[in-house]
Design a protein around this nucleic acid. Structure first.
Length: 1100
RNA sequence: GGACGACUAGCUCAGUUGGUUAGAGCGCUACAUUGACAUUGUAGAGGUCACAGGUUCGAAUCCUGUGCCGUCCACCA
């Protein structure tokens, strides 16, 4: 088999073609892999690139790491899946498109275009971007399953988002609240705490008093917000101010109304900082807002969503920007001699990471995820779930513990969790998943009033039998209850009486209201349908909350009840506007009213005391003013409006590991006991996740939150944190610096393999790395080397092959044994490195073996010695080497592989295992006889006999010593000389290596090897591994003397150090015997070498 | 203010549990061009492992402190 390959590897000529072959083969899809039965699953969800543009080098790094890991696992025979995808990146993408539109001359895109048209433009942009990104991922060689391509904004992913939002809402974890939020005036949207970028700025810190007679001075960098101050906080232990706590001062500083400033005591105040007192502006500071909640203060917003001062700020300030207002306020304080101090300080201010403007804290009604509230039925908060997954494992199960590499990021993660506030999830931009909250309201004059009665008890009720839709009779007690209730409410007037169509409700209504009213029945007011549970003795008291979102078998869940009640109410709102309605029905619908009209969660409603103590009471009153309904579709009926806000983009990213694996379609139940099917059952939790530390909190934390909450499982088992790439000077890559490098251009110039290798070599987990062209060049050079090694090996193949399986029964040369031993060590270390995510080290090792051991020594040696199965060994090594390299540089290895094995794919070959060479090679324990020859190998022959061989390293040392001695003596490279070697015990061995010693660039024409002999003068002299070498007839006495003296000096130094060490009694006594012996042996070797050299100096 | 990381050859970085004459790649110096490869080969120079203490028979490695650079978090009233 003789192959003709081009002299240099040209990636351009192969890469696209190879990727297409891979894709067409279907092998990226684990369903198509032919694997052993019971093969492990291995899955990775690709961190989805934002559709804000094209891929940058950071993505290339991620793809390289990810694909190396994935290909490694695939080649270990695992059922391997890498799911590709992209992220709609809500704010980022809209901000980007708005910028483009501005450049096009559309001054205010949101107003000019409106919601639908703007969204169309964003969609168009993102689709283009998506297409480009996919092409780029393919260029990088990433082996992902395109049949499972996902997008955070596609239908399946949107369904997942909707379902989770609804679930959280129903669990009472999502709430709408009026709270201080981060507001970008430029973007006209909120952002979460994590989306702030802090910028250091010089600012003035003003110390002043509100009025001349106000007893406490306060300091601020934001005087304009002081128009909304409602308190001054001091430390309760502060002797200076203690006496004022509780007092209220009225001051006039120019706001619309005089400010009532209450002095409050709070432990959080640092007495020693500034004046020791804080002016509290609840509306415009996160901290102050918390003081506002804690101390029940007043809140006065003085800055509006437009970034200008509000009417409450006073006529002088209204409509001014904050900067203008600040100047005015400062001037006013100065004029009135209230300013005590002005000093310049440096402090950091929060800016929007997407819009770039300074963030204002403004109180607004927004949606939040409550991270501290107990999740119904779980006895834990989201925060606790998030902490647990990384500390002790999910639900305390150590098998469900997420391992972060490097583990120092654990602490950072825990610290972040400790400081986590409720997550503001609503955004006022349009590009994103719209919040699924529908509302319908009436104006105040037309409010419908509802008085709700629960029917009298039935026999089943009394026996604690679940009744549901069973139509039981009222018991005697029930009749009595209804009659008594009727008497109690005699005075009340209603316009309409409506009851459920079940008998117990109708009968109760009749007994209560007699003939006074016409009684209308409505099916929608029925009790919850308990399905199979009907007629059975119930145990609702303890575990009713379990059924909140889990359906009763063949029945309903409570949200089904909520749905029909909402529809009923929506209709009632229109039909009976302004009227008074009496409803006689059951318990579940009543709870639904608490939920729908009082804004309670089901869990809260169910846990209220009245349920336990007294079910029957004379009516609950509700105002049917506003209906809120959470659902992926608008409820039936007229007049429903959807919340205009969209969800934080990280809400959808948090679901990524399971929304890409078919959730919720592949999960039968969504809560409690999620039954998993399909991909979800096989591939979740995912095996591995890789991300930059800069999105640890954004993303990793949210994936953990979502997965533990929704699936009751961790999202991934291992997280590999990588650093960020920097340019040659250590600067971040950024548009403004103009130092960006387009990965595709690098690929065009050097090839994808070279780019990948240059990104992976020299990196360590969690640390930043620099990227520069020389690195890629080096990688390209290496790949070309590998190409040429292959070229040489392929050209040296014979037509007829000997069976390689019986290798051990052939006579192997010293070099053969050596290279096979090196290979065995390489394979072992390679697996160890990769199992511990030491990608760089595994790569370095491979390069070391390939370039040094194989190319520089073994291949060179093979030119000068012919063993009977040299060709087979070479091919075996090449085959294994291609496999080992494949995860790193998939293209070139696959190209070469297919030259050897047409029609077969390297990407699904099985990696050599650490034991695959063990059958005929194993290390022999070091013995005295073998010392000085490196680690000898035991060769087990086919006939069962054993042969001990000295290591090839001795030959290497001798050759290197000869080359060195020649070069130092300035012997012209072309000049052929004679060498005499006194080899002692190694004589026979070296005689067998004559051809190699002569051939490998030593320029030796005549070689004499004997055990020992006379000292030769007029020769270049060298010692290597105890063997003496004389090079005859080329000595430059002067140079040789200098060289040997240098070596002598070096040896003397080493000997001195060793002697001192061994003279130290403590060392000899305390150090392990092995070490001591080693040192002694070393000393002996040095001494004998020194002796020889010293003699030789005299001969010169 | 708190936490974390980095400080090793001219440059970029390895160095896994303390024991090697401290390594690699690039760069540099000298030399080499008869077919695997000049995207190459051979040889070489180059380091007080930031500093100061300590633990230890033994420290680049462990501890303490200092310096310098960087990152994150909190605060900046």
């Amino acid at each position: 088999m003789s192959k003709e390959l081009p002299k240099a590897y040209e990636p351009k000529n192969y890469e696209d073609e190879i990727y297409k072959k891979w894709e067409d083969s279907g092998l990226f899809n684990p369903d198509n892999l032919e694997l052993e039965k019971g093969a492990d699953y291995f899955s990775v969800s690709m961190p989805p690139p934002n559709v804000t543009g094209v891929l940058h080098l950071g993505h290339a790094l991620e793809n390289s790491l990810m694909d190396t890991e994935v290909r490694y696992q695939r080649m270990r025979g695992k059922k391997t899946l890498l799911v590709p995808g992209t992220d709609h990146a809500a704010v980022a993408t809209q901000a980007k498109v708005e910028k483009v539109l501005l450049a096009e001359g559309i001054a205010n895109p949101r107003i000019t275009l409106g919601r639908e048209k703007l969204l169309e433009r964003v969609r168009e942009y993102s689709e283009n971007s998506k297409a480009t990104i996919i092409k780029q991922i393919k260029k990088l060689g990433t082996s992902c399953d395109w049949s499972r391509l996902a997008y955070t904004f596609d239908e399946a992913r949107s369904t997942a988002v909707n379902e989770v939002f609804i679930k959280m809402y129903n669990d009472g974890l999502v709430y709408k609240g009026y709270r201080a939020v981060n507001w970008s005036v430029k973007g006209q949207s909120t952002c979460s705490d994590d989306e702030l970028v802090y910028v250091e700025q010089k600012t003035k810190l003003y110390t002043f008093k509100y009025s001349k007679d106000f007893p406490i001075a306060i300091a601020t960098t934001r005087p304009e917000t002081k128009l909304g101050d409602t308190a001054v906080a001091v430390n309760p232990k502060d002797k200076r101010y203690k006496k004022f706590i509780g007092k209220i001062f009225t001051v006039e500083i120019g706001a619309a109304k005089p400010l009532k400033i209450e002095i409050i005591g709070d432990d959080s105040i640092d007495m020693n900082f500034g004046t020791g007192a804080v002016g509290v502006t609840p509306a415009h500071s996160m901290i102050d807002f918390e003081l506002f909640l804690k101390h029940n203060l007043i809140l006065i917003p003085v800055i509006g969503a437009d970034g200008r001062m509000t009417a409450d700020a006073g006529i002088t300030y209204q409509g001014l920007t904050v900067i203008e207002a600040r100047e005015k306020m400062v001037a006013w304080l100065q004029e009135n001699s209230l300013m005590e101090k002005e000093e310049e300080i440096i402090h950091s201010i929060g800016t929007s990471d997407r819009f770039g403007d300074v963030i204002e804290v403004i109180p607004m009604e927004q949606w939040f995820v409550n991270v501290n509230k107990e999740i119904p039925g779980r006895k834990k908060s989201l925060k606790e779930l998030m902490r647990e997954a990384v500390s002790v494992g999910h639900n305390g199960d150590p098998k469900k513990k997420i391992a972060i590499t490097p583990d120092r990021f654990n602490n950072q993660y825990f610290h972040w969790i400790d400081n986590l506030r409720d997550w503001c999830i609503s955004r006022q931009i349009w590009w994103g998943h719209r919040i699924l909250v529908w509302s319908k309201s009436h104006n105040v004059e037309r409010i419908t009033h509802i008085t709700y009665f629960v029917h009298g008890t039935t026999t089943d009720n009394e026996k604690e039998i679940a009744t549901g839709w069973l139509d039981g009779e009222l018991s005697d007690l029930g009749k009595k209850q209804a009659i008594e209730l009727g008497e109690k409410i005699q005075e009340q007037k209603f316009d309409v009486v409506i009851c459920s169509d079940l008998k117990r409700a109708v009968d109760s209504a009749k007994l209560m209201f007699g003939e006074k009213y016409e009684i209308i029945t409505d099916k929608r007011l029925r009790e919850a349908n308990y399905g199979d549970y009907n007629g059975k003795k119930h145990s609702f008291k303890n575990n009713l909350t379990d059924y909140i979102s889990q359906s009763f078998t063949n029945g309903e869940n409570y949200f089904d009840v909520q749905k029909r009640i909402t529809e009923f109410l929506s209709e009632a709102m229109d039909k009976y506007a302004g009227k008074k309605i009496a409803i006689v029905a059951h318990q579940a619908p009543q709870l639904a009213l608490e939920v729908v009209l009082k804004g309670k969660s089901w869990a809260e409603a169910m846990n209220e005391d009245w349920r336990r103590k007294k079910a029957w009471q004379p009516g609950w009153n509700y105002d049917l003013e506003k209906l809120v309904y959470v659902s992926s579709e608008a409820p039936q009926g007229e007049g429903w409006n959807q919340d205009p806000d969209t969800l934080d983009t990280w809400f959808s990213s948090g679901l990524w590991t399971f929304s890409t694996l078919g959730w919720p379609a592949h999960a039968k139940a969504s809560v409690g006991k999620p039954e998993r099917l399909g991909d979800l059952a096989k591939f979740h939790p995912t095996s591995w996740m890789q991300m930059g530390y800069e999105i640890l909190f954004f993303w990793m934390a949210r994936m953990i939150l979502m997965s533990t909450y929704v699936l009751n499982d961790i999202p991934f088992k291992n997280v590999y944190i990588h650093g960020i790439l920097r340019d040659k000077d250590g600067r971040k890559f950024s548009k403004s610096l103009g130092n960006g490098i387009d990965p595709i251009e690098v690929i065009n110039q050097y090839g994808a393999d070279a780019l990948r290798l240059s990104l992976i070599l020299g990196i360590t987990p969690g640390n930043d790395a620099r990227f520069y062209e020389e690195k890629v060049e080096g990688a390209r050079n290496f790949i070309n080397k590998l190409w040429n090694i292959s070229r040489y090996i392929l050209s040296s193949q014979k037509e007829a092959k000997l069976p390689i399986g019986s290798l051990a029964s052939y006579n192997l040369t010293l070099a053969d044994r050596w290279v096979l031993g090196e290979m065995r060590d390489l394979i072992k270390n390679y697996h160890e490195d990769l199992e511990n995510y030491r990608f760089s080290q595994a790569g370095e090792r491979l390069r070391e073996f390939t370039w040094n051991s194989l190319a520089d020594w073994y291949l060179e040696a093979s030119k000068f010695e012919k063993s009977e199965i040299k060709a087979e060994i070479l091919e075996m090594i090449l085959t294994d080497l291609l496999k080992l390299w494949h995860p790193f540089i998939p293209f070139v290895t696959e190209v070469i592989w297919q030259e050897i094995n047409p029609g077969k794919f390297l990407m699904v070959e099985k990696l050599p295992s650490p034991t695959s060479l063990q059958s005929f090679l194993q290390p022999l324990p070091a013995s005295p006889a073998a010392s000085g020859f490196g680690t000898p190998l035991l060769i087990r022959r086919g006939d069962g006999g054993e042969v001990v061989a000295a290591n090839f390293n001795l030959v290497i040392d001798i050759i290197t010593a000869i080359r060195n001695a020649r070069a130092e003596n300035k012997v012209e490279p072309g000049r052929k000389i004679k060498a005499v070697i006194y080899a002692g015990k190694a004589t026979d061995l070296l005689k067998s290596q004559e051809a190699i010693i002569k051939g490998l660039r030593t320029g030796i024409e005549e070689l004499e090897i004997k055990a020992k002999g006379e000292e030769l003068s007029d020769a270049i002299y060298a010692v290597a591994g105890g063997v003496e070498i004389y090079l005859i007839g080329a000595v430059d006495a002067k140079k040789e003397k200098v060289r040997i003296e240098k070596e002598v000096a070096n040896l003397e130094k080493l000997i001195k150090n060793l002697k001192n060490k061994l003279a130290n009694k403590e060392f000899v006594d305390k150090a392990p015997q092995e070490i001591v012996k080693n040192e002694k042996d070393k000393l002996e070797n040095y001494r004998s070498e020194l002796e020889k050299l010293e003699k030789q100096v005299k001969n010169l």
